[in-house]
Design a protein around this nucleic acid. Structure first.
Lengths: 150, 150
DNA sequence: CGGTTGCTTGGAGTGCACTCCAAGGTCCTA
DNA sequence: TAGGACCTTGGAGTGCACTCCAAGCAACCG
């Protein structure tokens, strides 16, 4: 159990203001609470920790995980990144940068900017796709209207 | 080699007008030409056909695949659907509907509309993500500017 | 004529992101 | 005191979408 010190270093501290308070107001949650809240399974949460995707999760005096609000913030962020299709390995890289402290601000910013470029590209692609779908849906709608009139 | 008749049924006939002409102007391409054009491998193209994702591909008198412009249109469309994360099985379903003829127009339209809803949702999610990324990138940019002034 | 490209089927392998389990243990609540 | 939630590690299994190959053969090109 040779843990490195609980670094919990200054990372981009805040999420944009959240609308919804967390389940129970306190700042510690068991793994099953977090699972219920995030929709991830406890297995997945432990796996995230194993592969270094969590920036250190605290433990109770008996060794149970105690997730904090900052962990939920992080998981929400990871969820967003996941939606972009970012590979887990890249997220792990970002998590590493967090653990390494403030001197990685530049690299973190670059990583996020590159991700942002990807996301913008994906949005553009999807909007393209949307145009095609609109076109085809109109085609079918027209064709069916025409055949009804016939 | 018990092929069903080359159905090549009326499907949403046109893609939205395309900007780029196809490699060589003729209406038949070998598998490697299509591979080069689409970025898919010949393996993948054959696999698409095997699983029923292609609406019948013609053959030369010697049995070689001869892709036509309509196949390239279809592959371009499949490529877009792939970008949306639609599972291959659903695309196969759509391809089946094409093969079944005009009486499936309604179901095709529904399928595309459901896909469109998904795409819109994905775009919204990505825009959400974009907002978070912007926020964090600004955070790092500010922090670095501040530390430089210090 | 030889080399490249293509054909077929069936099946094996890859990489990703989970997903789950075993096994043996601790701790908390009713 | 029983049951349930949780802990650990290592490893196996899953599902998807490819990705590639073997083997044996046909056709085309210079």
């Amino acid at each position: 159990m040779t843990e490195t010190a609980p670094v919990r270093t200054a990372f981009c501290a805040k999420q944009p203001p959240r609308a919804h308070p967390r389940p129970e107001g306190q700042d510690h949650y068991t793994i099953s609470e977090v699972a219920a809240h995030t929709g991830l399974t406890a297995y997945t949460l432990r796996w995230y920790e194993r592969i270094g995707l969590m920036p250190y999760v605290g433990r109770s005096h008996t060794g149970q995980r105690r997730f904090r609000n900052s962990d939920l913030d992080w998981l929400a962020f990871v969820g967003k990144l996941r939606l972009t299709g970012m590979p887990v390995a890249d997220m792990v890289r970002y998590a590493e940068l967090l653990r390494e402290g403030e001197h990685t601000f530049e690299e973190r910013q670059e990583l996020l900017e590159s991700t942002r470029r990807d996301v913008r590209k994906r949005i553009a692609e999807l909007q393209d796709t949307l145009a095609v779908l609109d076109y085809k849906i109109d085609f079918y709608a027209d064709a069916r209207r025409a055949s009804e009139r016939a």
